[in-house]
Amino acid sequence: MEDLSQFPLELDGADRPMVSFRKVTKRYGSLTVLDNLDLDVAEGEMVSIIGPSGSGKTTVLRMLMLERIQGGVIYVDGQPLTHEVRDGALVPASERYLRRAREPIGMCFQHFNLFPHMTALQNCMEGPVQVLGLSRQEARARSEELLDMVGLIDKKDQHPSRLSGGQQQRVAIARALAMRPKVMLLDEVTSALDPEVIGEVTEVIRKLVREHRLTIMMVTHQMGFAADISDRVCFFYGGRIEEQGPPSELFGNPQKDRTRQFLSAVKSAD
């Protein structure tokens, strides 16, 4: 059994990170995908995660939103996410606690995952009405504002099947934002898109970074984009952070061989 008493019950202090992974281990059966991961993300920080296929990038995001971990503790906004405090000690979180703790997190997926039986507007209103308990008017106002922000207010009554991939992904971003998250997780949100519509999605993400004080963790294969908008870039290799730093340093002057190899392989593929 893991000794959970080594982990604090909560993180406090003004400079506490928005997201904190402490010695986090994730296994699928006998395969250890992430081993003893430590990673802090500050409030308002934009962190990009890059690395070869299978290095655990998606897994990092999924542990925050969708999956349980086998070791360590994750904190969000100072509170434990994967564990809850009972009788003054950390214990693995119940399903209900976990869902609650994940409320301040929003996620966008590679394949959008919009609800096909709802229009763009209904997709955005679903969470605010069903989960946050907003009135339909409030939810509608909020959703229309966000659809306007992503440039799709004229498509609000369309079903996803009538929208292009780029448009669907922008609706998905608006849907996640409608929950007013503090943390946004973006998993290769442009990878399933035709090259000519990638720009419309990256433009929305730029706007998010500029205009909202949102903490963002973004997995991406677009090195140029990551270099452009990130505060920090983490290079994953084999389930560990091999190297991290501001984009100028990681891309401009990588220290590790594997980082250099990966970056030159990506560059020659472009």
């Binding site: 939103m65 969708l66 869902r99 609650r100 994940r102 409320e103 997190i105 929003g106 996620m107 997926f109 394949h111 995952n113 919009l114 609800f115 096909p116 039986h117 679903e126 969470g127 069903q130 989960v131 998905a172 849907r175 996640a176 929950m179």
Partner: peptide
Amino acid sequence: PKGQWEAAYALSMSPARRMWRIILPQ
């Protein structure tokens, strides 16, 4: 598709709401 469950979960929907509002209609 599994992605529909995950998207509903990512909106913090309860299991009953996920089933009734998202999965069953599809």
